[in-house]
Structure formats: structure tokens, C-alpha cells
Design a protein around this nucleic acid. Structure first.
Lengths: 198, 198
DNA sequence: CATTGAGGGTGACATTTGTCATTAATACTG
DNA sequence: CAGTATTAATGACAAATGTCACCCTCAATG
């Protein structure tokens, strides 16, 4: 079984490569980011794509989205550090085969590969529940403003970056704060981030 | 060689266990946090401690600090995700044997274990340089206030938590902002965090 | 003993944020 | 076309934040 592994953290990538390589039927190709994975996927076909979400260049979700655009139904398993409902929902919409946390034991990963290869779906149970939870209430602008506020930019700077007036930004942030039940912009950003909405 | 591995992310812990276990001379014991490592270290002796910094309960640095308090000179290697100068300085002060980034290839880790076991010191070169950089200008109170501000707490809440008056908190944060050349508290927290001072 | 210097606190003031009501311009829809 | 969301902007006001100068207490140090 030809497996393409995309993971940016070198030590984990190496270690997973080695670990999965111990399975006699697996043949592993490992790359350090989404763009390299994309390049390989153009050239050659694989049986399973195993990818992290957070990667420089092209995220794991964007990579799968691209595959789907190419009408490529390649079975994919997403592994991620963060338990964020937003990610899971987006992944499910892309029809991924599996979604695991890096907090899961590694034999669960091996098991997931076999099962997804047989056409089953494997979603970490902690995540499955969350995915059904509350929807992201933020609008696109609110999200972008919040993201910048989170970096410590002032209202004026955010306004400049988003090409909007200062007052409008204040309105957006105020909306976001109230929607999320937060105490101020930073608090709001923290909450949104925690739920995968940022 | 008996190696104790402390790392909270299960998948990485499993994978590293397996990978290091392939070396015939290594015998690996893996635990998921600093407190469990501490418990084991009380009972039994090891040749090398391999520990992450960011862990629930007791951080890797605190763990080594505790060893030193116990007059235990156990050779230790710190592995961490983040390239933060403050961490390196503190680690060096604790006389650790090695300091590596999770971004390093895994064979470098194996190599480091052998070298540290022989009494050498292995510090990732990206880090060694940084460690000589600028010193943390923050006082302890400023740091604590900044940490809470970073979570989105208001001045009043921070004052309550630290048992200080609101005005004093404002003074501290104002000091921190000016020392770090930041635009506001959030910006200051970001800067401090980035340099490992938080 | 006088001096210095932390550590913590006040008060006053300017600026930035957060809230809300209202309005204008555009696009969508029956 | 009238009706109605959507998106952006204003203005006004309250609250939180940032800045600064100055005060008090208590060790430490000469």
C-alpha cells in the first residue's frame, strides 16, 4: 500500500515514517509540506494520503480540497494537534476517510489506515461529537478583524489592513464580542480560536 | 542504556518510543507528563532523560530543576517545538546535556543521545546563537500580569488574581509595553511570548 | 542615622475600545 | 418596481486602557 505522508514537524515525520515502515505492506513517502505533497500527487498515484492540517504553504484541508477539485477521490486521513470543531466539519464536507488527533496512540493510526483503505470511515470520537455542536456564528469580516486583533493590532491598523473605516471595525469586533459572549476582543479571539472558528 | 522519555503528545511519544527502541542498546520507558516522570525517577535510575518542555502538570524544565535540587546530575536532553531564547538560557543554567527542536531530524536525536551519554553537550545551532541575544527585561510581576492580559482578562480581573490594585496593574502593563516597544498589552504579550519571556 | 531604592499605590488625563442608534448605498427578489 | 437584506459608515457616549508624576513604607546600606 503506497502511503503519502505530509507533516511539517521533522521529528514526528521521521518517527511516523519509521513506525509505519515497520508494517510490511506499507510503503511510505514522506514530505514536509502541502505544496510538496501536491507536486507528488500530480506525478504519481497513492493509495492513502496521511496529512497534518497545520502546515506552511498549503494546509492539509486545502490539499484535500484541491484533490476533490481534480476529481481525485484519494482516501485521506487528517491528523491534527488541535481539537477544533470547525476543522472537523470542513473535513467531513470534503469527504475525508479519517480524522485523528496527534494525541491518539500510534497503533490507532495504523488501524485507521487499514480501515480507511477498506473504505470505512474513522473519526476520533472526541471529535465526532463536537462536529455536531454549535455552528460558527462569525461572518467573514468579523473573523478577519478578530484575527488581526488577536495579533495585537489596534483598531486603526486593522481598519487600514482591511480597507474599512475605523468605526466599522469597532462595530464588527463589538458584534463578535457579543456573539461569543466574550469580555473584550482578546477574549473573543481566544474563544473563537478554541472552537476552531478562527 | 535506560532512557526515560517524557512527552505528552501520544502519537509522537509512541513513534519516538518505537524509533528509539530500534537501537539495540536502548531501553525506553515512556510517560505522558512531568509528574509521572518525577514519580518514576524517584523509584528507579536512568541513564538519560529525554523530555519535552510543554507538558501538563510539570514542565520539562521544572522537572530538570527538581532533579538538580535532589542533587541528581542525570544527563538530560530537552526537545521542544518552540525556538524560544528564554527556554535555552534557563536550560543551560540547569546544565542540561542537550537541547533540540522537534524540527530536527530523528537521527540527530539518536546521535545526541549517544553524545550526551558520553558527556558531550549538544545544542541545536539555531538555538545556541539566540541564547546569547538580549536578556529578558521584564520583572516577575510584569510577566505575570502580561500572561493574564494575554488570556483576555481585564485590568480589574488581573488585579484581583494577583492581589494588587488596578492602578498598579496598569502601571506594570504600561512598563512592559514600553520596555518591549509594543503598541498595547496584547502586542506586548505577543512579543514577549515570541522571545520566550512569557 | 540619613539615604537610597524596591515594591506598591493614587489621581489625573488622554486615548482607545465597546455599544448603539441611525443612515446611505448596493444588490437580491418577488 | 417596491421591498428588503447586506455591507459600510457616522456620531455620540460610556468604559477600559495607557501614561505620568508623585506618594508611602520598609529594608538594605553607607
Amino acid at each position: 500500500m503506497n502511503i503519502l505522508l505530509a507533516e511539517d514537524q521533522t521529528m514526528l515525520r521521521d518517527a511516523l515514517s519509521t513506525l509505519l515502515g515497520l508494517e510490511p505492506s506499507f510503503s511510505i513517502t514522506a514530505v514536509s509540506d502541502g505544496l510538496k505533497a501536491q507536486a507528488l500527487l500530480r506525478e504519481k498515484s497513492f493509495d492513502i494520503l496521511l496529512t497534518d492540517i497545520e502546515m506552511p504553504g498549503l494546509s492539509g484541508l486545502d490539499l484535500v480540497a484541491w484533490l476533490r477539485e481534480q476529481q481525485n477521490p484519494l482516501a485521506s486521513i487528517i491528523i491534527t494537534t488541535f481539537n477544533r470543531a470547525g476543522f472537523v466539519r470542513r473535513a467531513l464536507a470534503l469527504d475525508v476517510g479519517g480524522f485523528l488527533l496527534k494525541d491518539a496512540p500510534s497503533d490507532q493510526l495504523v488501524d485507521a489506515i487499514y480501515r480507511v483503505h477498506r473504505g470505512e470511515r474513522v473519526i476520533a470520537s472526541e471529535l465526532a461529537l463536537q462536529a455536531l455542536g454549535d455552528q460558527d456564528p462569525l461572518t467573514d469580516k468579523e473573523r478577519r478583524a478578530l484575527r488581526l486583533a488577536h495579533e495585537g493590532l489596534s483598531t486603526a491598523h486593522i481598519a487600514q489592513k482591511l480597507c474599512l473605516s475605523e468605526g466599522t471595525i469597532r462595530n464588527y469586533l463589538s458584534e463578535a464580542i457579543s456573539k461569543l459572549g466574550a469580555g473584550n476582543r482578546v477574549d473573543a479571539a481566544r474563544i473563537a480560536r478554541h472552537r476552531g472558528w478562527l
